[in-house]
Simulated assay, not measured.
Amino acid sequence: MGDHLQEKTLNKEKIFEGRIIELSVHDVALPNGKESKREIINHPGAVAVLAVTKENKLVLVNQFRKALEKTIAEIPAGKLEAGEDPKQCAFRELEEETGYAAESMEKIASFYTSPGFADEIVYLYEAKELQSGEVKTDEDEFVEKIEVTLDEALEMIKTEAVHDAKTILAIQHWLLKKQG
């Protein structure tokens, strides 16, 4: 499907390699025979976790995001380590950022964050049967755990306190599940 739309890479030059991402420029042959350039970010992928407590509260973390120069509330999430199973990463990230351990994880969906220029894929899971514990964030990670009702979460979307796609998608999933 869509083979007639493919672009063939003619040359690829790595411009930057960081701790998390790589940036490369690809010279490509377009379907119409012309050539163009594509700037591509390679990312190892990530997980995100919809976690709702026994009290029917959504677990979020407030985190400052330098790229945005502001703090936003997000569902627990984190980068996949090399070769790491996404489900295992979801268990790990939930516990590290919130202190909650889940009995099980159910995959909701996976999605590309910005397919126009990045290959990052996020695996969204729903945590089941939460047990509270101790937060164990990474040395360079500073988060504040909060718990909100569905109505509060929907209001946070309106006020842009929640302002990222993975969290909005998770909240919409929770809303649809409650309605269905």
Rank of each mutant, 00 (worst) to 15 (best):
S24K: 09
H26R: 09
D27F: 03
A29N: 08
L30P: 15
P31K: 00
N32Y: 10
K37P: 12
K37I: 12
R38P: 14
E39C: 08
I40P: 11
I40C: 10
N42Q: 14
P44Y: 04
A46Q: 02
V47S: 03
V52S: 00
T53G: 03
K57T: 01
L58A: 08
L58H: 00
N62M: 07
A67M: 04
I72F: 00
E74W: 02
A77L: 08
E81Y: 08
A82T: 08
G83R: 02
E84I: 07
P86H: 13
Q88I: 05
C89D: 10
R92G: 12
E97R: 10
Y100D: 02
A101Q: 09
A101E: 09
A102F: 08
S104C: 14
M105L: 14
M105H: 12
I108H: 05
P115K: 12
G116C: 13
F117K: 13
A118M: 14
Y123C: 09
L124Q: 03
L124P: 11
K128Y: 01
E129I: 03
G133H: 00
D138W: 09
D138M: 11
E139G: 01
E141W: 02
E141L: 08
E144Q: 06
E144N: 07
E144G: 10
K145V: 08
D151I: 01
E152R: 01
A153F: 07
L154A: 09
E155A: 14
M156N: 06
